[in-house]
């Protein structure tokens, strides 16, 4: 078998110099470098470069490196300790906050709803009275109003409901001239 005497590629010499070749490739490179001055020179060039790179030194960590790190780690540990000292508390805290917000929204909504249905009871009755469907509602309303209070006579109640459309005539109520005329009439009578 003919022995391979051709020069090594630069890349192969570099890999050999850096210990990156193994097995048969390493054997071949070692054998060739033993007899080839040109390839030896290339390998020595890489060794010189390697040696030159050694002269780049850098400073080590500062004296306060560890104390700074310990302080940061301590604050991290506090964060991890979480809500009421529970390990999963950091998830619980935002969840409970969200639950409180939702509860608050529901409560406000419920309060508004209850206000809307209880407050304008008279106006609703009045509208029904105008549309002619008021009779059954009117009869049930005084019963509920009368609970715990002094019962009003039925005819007085009926008068009140009959007058409701007039009381709802805001244009007329806003016209205070009528009232001033009344005052003038009473003075003239005196």
């Amino acid at each position: 078998m003919k022995k391979d005497t051709s020069c090594l590629e630069r890349e192969q010499i570099f890999y050999f110099a850096q210990g990156m070749l193994e097995g048969r490739e390493a054997e071949r490179a070692r054998g060739h470098l033993a007899v080839c001055p040109a390839c030896i020179q290339t390998a020595e060039g890489y060794q010189r470069l390697n040696h030159a790179l050694d002269s780049w030194k850098v400073s080590g960590p500062s004296a306060w490196f560890e104390s700074r790190l310990q302080a940061t780690l301590a604050s991290t540990a506090d964060e991890r300790r979480g809500f009421f000292g529970l390990p999963w508390g950091r998830w619980l805290a935002p969840a409970s906050l969200a639950a409180m917000v939702v509860f608050g929204i529901v409560m406000v909504h419920a309060w508004r709803q209850s206000g809307r249905y209880s407050q304008p009871a008279v106006l609703t009755s009045a509208r029904l009275a105008r549309s002619g469907q008021a009779q059954p509602q009117i009869q049930s309303a005084p019963a509920s109003v009368a609970e715990g209070a002094e019962a009003k006579p039925a005819d007085e109640e009926m008068t009140l409901y009959k007058n409701l459309p007039m009381l709802e005539n805001y244009d007329m109520l806003a016209n205070f001239d009528v009232l001033s005329e009344l005052a003038a009439d009473s003075k003239a009578a005196d």
Binding site: V58, G60, P61, S62, F65, L69, L73, T76
Partner: peptide, 28 residues
């Protein structure tokens, strides 16, 4: 690994203060 990491960052980013910050970040 404190010194090797600070050395690595010092050569990578050159700025010694930044090198320390980055080494701290690794440990963190």
């Amino acid at each position: 690994y404190r010194a090797p990491l600070v050395g690595y960052f010092s050569r990578m980013v050159r700025d010694p203060a930044l090198a320390e910050d980055l080494a701290q970040e690794v440990f963190l």
